[in-house]
Design a protein around this nucleic acid. Structure first.
Lengths: 119, 119
DNA sequence: TAAACATGCAACTATTTGGTTGCCTGTTCC
DNA sequence: GGAACAGGCAACCAAATAGTTGCATGTTTA
């Protein structure tokens, strides 16, 4: 319907919400941390740093980035700071990709129908 | 099974493949370009730049980033350089998120079962 | 209580990134 | 052929990022 689209995907607020999550996912170290938390959660900063070639402070920074977009939650337990994954933003990101992908498939189908009609 | 996991998610090659795609998606401008290409493709650089507050050269750089991870394909048509979306990397990224999300749900379920058994 | 541990904070560095401007080349179209 | 258009290339800039080191603080635990 209508030649006037733009709607769902380009709506600025939607983009502004998703871009930071993808940016947070766009780093190998952070992706590794997420995977690690996904398999053996919860983990303290030191535990996570022990598995990594980089320093504890670097790991902390990465964890704060992930926390900033809601991909992990931190809880202080005694002297340790324990992190746990939160899959919700992950699912929203996945849904967004599915939406774009779907919309593109639809566009291709419309194009195909148009071409065939013309022939 | 087995307590020795790590496998699927932390495997280095997998991470190395996905991180750059997420990084490419982690910018509002590029997300806007993708959405735009998804709705009215194919588009030339100038067309895309006309919709944007930033310069043509900046748009070009962003398009090259997207092209670098295979999210778009470029084709020279006369003097114009026309871009089209490729949904395949998008779907792989989506699948990866789904996998992490799924694995996390499983981990939660195992934890819950463990706690209940203990009680 | 003292040692060992877990973390936070701050300063600093190097690299990457997002953006710009200026200029040059190739392509349409009148 | 010449004007207008589409794009490439290169130099440059400012801000953000990924990483480091050094040190101070709170928490276990022997």
């Amino acid at each position: 319907m209508s030649g006037k689209q733009s709607s769902a995907l380009t709506a600025a607020p939607l983009l502004r919400r998703h871009a930071p999550v993808f940016a947070a996912l766009g780093d190998e170290t952070r992706l590794t941390l997420l995977a690690r938390l996904c398999e053996r959660a919860p983990c303290s900063i030191s535990q996570l740093a022990a598995d990594s070639p980089i320093t504890r402070q670097a790991i902390t920074k990465h964890l704060r980035v992930l926390e900033g977009v809601g991909l992990v939650r931190a809880e202080a337990i005694g002297r340790a700071c324990v992190f746990e994954l939160d899959a919700e933003p992950l699912e929203r990101a996945r849904d967004y990709l599915a939406l774009v992908s779907q919309q593109w498939d639809d566009a291709l189908a419309r194009l195909k129908a148009f071409v065939e009609k013309k022939t």
